[in-house]
């Protein structure tokens, strides 16, 4: 049994970087899919609702892993073009987690009081303006906590990509294990790496949530140094509005 050498550490950090990239690109695609499908599922035309609902059911019902196999192995046979492994993985993860995310978007939009839309109609806003200026800003803070959960799930889901040959943390860890012949140290290292990534995501999303709430007057905006910004200091949650009434 051997030490994890500097070269092997290099492999692990390459893997970490790939995992970060996968997570960021997949999350970006998933966010676009979540908003497009989620809003389409509240559309007034039934055909739009039907098609977007079908997307949701299909992608929720199939696993990201199977989808990845399809995109990487089957699509080239059927259509004759081959995606690089990284983009096949991003596509599979983005489409799948986008379907989950669409449920978050749909639910949060539906939860905004109907009276808010009526007030928008009374001021002659167009449907698009009502959505952009009234509905989405109020739905957004409600979306952030479930989006955080999905993002963590997505991070963990990136471990699937080693099956199509993408060199993420999990794949590199296996290489390192083969080289050292020792499982415990390297798997402990990647355990910590995943945990740190998840922790950073959660802290980042807390900041996003606080800003989202402040932007609709639900909590005072926090100021302070970088530690406060990242939420690394324990924050005392202030409840509700600070203003007075007369």
């Amino acid at each position: 049994m051997n030490e994890i050498t500097a070269g092997l550490w290099g492999l692990l950090f390459d893997g970490l970087w790939i995992t970060v990239q996968l997570t960021v690109y997949s999350a970006a695609l998933a966010a676009v899919v979540a908003f497009v499908i989620g809003l389409a599922r509240t559309h007034r035309l039934w055909i739009v609702r039907f098609l977007s609902g079908a997307y949701f059911e299909i992608f929720r019902g199939t696993s990201a892993l199977i989808l990845m196999f399809w995109i990487f192995f089957v699509v080239p046979l059927l259509f004759g073009w081959q995606l690089v492994p990284m983009w096949a993985a991003v596509l599979a993860l983005g489409l799948t987690y986008g379907a989950y995310g669409s449920e978050v978007v749909r639910g949060s939009v539906a939860a905004v009081a109907p009276a808010q839309r009526e007030a928008g109609i009374a001021l002659s806003f167009t449907s698009a303006q009502q959505l952009r200026k009234i509905i989405l800003p109020q739905a957004w803070p409600e979306m952030v906590p479930p989006f955080n959960n999905l993002l963590i799930e997505l991070l963990k889901g990136t471990a699937l990509v080693s099956v199509v040959g993408v060199g993420d943390i999990t794949r590199e860890a296996n290489l390192v294990r083969n080289a050292t012949g020792d499982s415990a140290p390297v798997f402990t290292v990647i355990l910590v790496m995943y945990f740190v990534l998840a922790f950073v995501i959660t802290r980042g999303m807390r900041v996003v949530e606080r800003q989202a709430k402040a932007s609709i007057g639900q909590a005072p905006p926090k100021s302070g140094g970088i530690t406060a910004k990242l939420g690394l200091r324990q924050q005392v949650e202030t409840s509700q509005s600070a203003g007075g009434s007369s």
């Binding site: 009276a115 007030a119 009234i134 800003p137 932007s215 609709i216 007057g217």
Partner: peptide, 11 residues
């Protein structure tokens, strides 16, 4: 409206 229906996301 009876319930005001101001937009809470705007000052």
């Amino acid at each position: 409206f009876q319930q005001f229906n101001l937009f809470p996301n705007m000052k």
